[in-house]
Design a protein around this nucleic acid. Structure first.
Lengths: 121, 121
DNA sequence: AACCTCGGTTACACAAGGGGAACCGCCATG
DNA sequence: CATGGCGGTTCCCCTTGTGTAACCGAGGTT
C-alpha cells in the first residue's frame, strides 16, 4: 500500500488550506476586504470573535504575508490592520466561496432534512 | 457590548464553512471533480486519508447533498461516489481556492521565513 | 480613588479533529 | 487453511481548536 499513489497536488493544497483555510482567517480577510483598514477591537466586535482567537489569527495572517499590521504608539495604543497585495488576491477565491456559501445554505439545509428523514424512516 | 454589531453575513458564511469547509471535504470534492466517479478505496489511496475520516467525510457530503453514493451489492461490494449538481457547482469556488493555494504556497513560505527571521533578530 | 479603554498575553478547561488498529461478512486467491 | 481485498464501523487515545477569565501598563474619565 504505497502512499506514492496519492495525488501530488492534494498534499500541497492541504498545506495551504491548513494555514489560511480556517474559519476565522477567512472571515477576517472578508472583513478587511470589505472595510479596508480596521482596528483590533473593531474586528473583534464585527466578527463576534474572542480576543484570544483574533490575536492568534491576525498574528498568523501577518506571518503568512496576507495582512499588514501598523502600530501607532499613542495612548491608548492604536493598531491598524489591512490586507497586503497577496491578501487582496486571496480575497477573490474567498469571496467566491463566500458567495457560493450564501447561495447554497438553504439548499444544504433542505438536503439535510431530506437525508435525515430518509434515515429515520 | 452588543453582538448585534457583528456583520450578519459572517454568521451564515461561518455556518456553511463549518459544514463543507474542512480540508477533507474540499479535497474529496476536488478529487471527484477531477476523476468523475470514484470508489471508496480509490479515494482513500488517492488522498492518503484514513479509512475513518473518509467514511465520515463522505457521509457528511452525501447528507449535505454534494455527493451521490451508489451501492452495487456485488461480491465484493462496490460503492461509487460522484458529485451531484450542487457538488459540481461547489467545485468552481473550490478549485479557484485550490489554484490560489498552489500559486501562493511559495510566497507564503517566503513571508514566513522573513517574519520568523525578523522576530528572532 | 476607582474604573474604563486599547491591544494584547497567559493559564485553564473542555470540545472537536483525526490517526491507528481491530473487527465484520463474503468471496477469491495462494 | 490462511491471507487479502472491499467498504465500512467502533473503540482508544493523542493533538488542536476555541472560549472564558484574569492580568498587564499608562493615561483619561467620573
Amino acid at each position: 500500500m504505497l502512499d506514492d499513489e496519492r495525488c501530488p497536488d492534494c498534499k500541497r493544497i492541504n498545506e495551504v488550506l491548513s494555514r489560511v483555510g480556517d474559519r476565522w482567517s477567512v472571515l477576517v480577510v472578508i472583513s478587511l476586504a470589505e472595510y479596508g483598514t480596521m482596528r483590533f477591537n473593531e474586528l473583534k466586535r464585527n466578527l463576534g470573535i474572542s480576543q484570544r482567537m483574533l490575536s492568534l489569527t491576525l498574528k498568523e495572517l501577518e506571518r503568512d504575508g496576507l495582512v499588514n499590521r501598523t502600530y501607532h504608539p499613542t495612548i491608548p495604543p492604536k493598531v491598524e490592520y489591512n490586507l497586503t497585495e497577496m491578501g487582496l488576491s486571496f480575497r477573490e477565491p474567498v469571496s467566491a466561496l463566500g458567495f457560493w456559501a450564501l447561495e447554497n445554505l438553504s439548499r444544504i439545509d433542505a438536503a439535510r432534512e431530506t437525508y435525515d428523514e430518509a434515515v429515520v424512516k
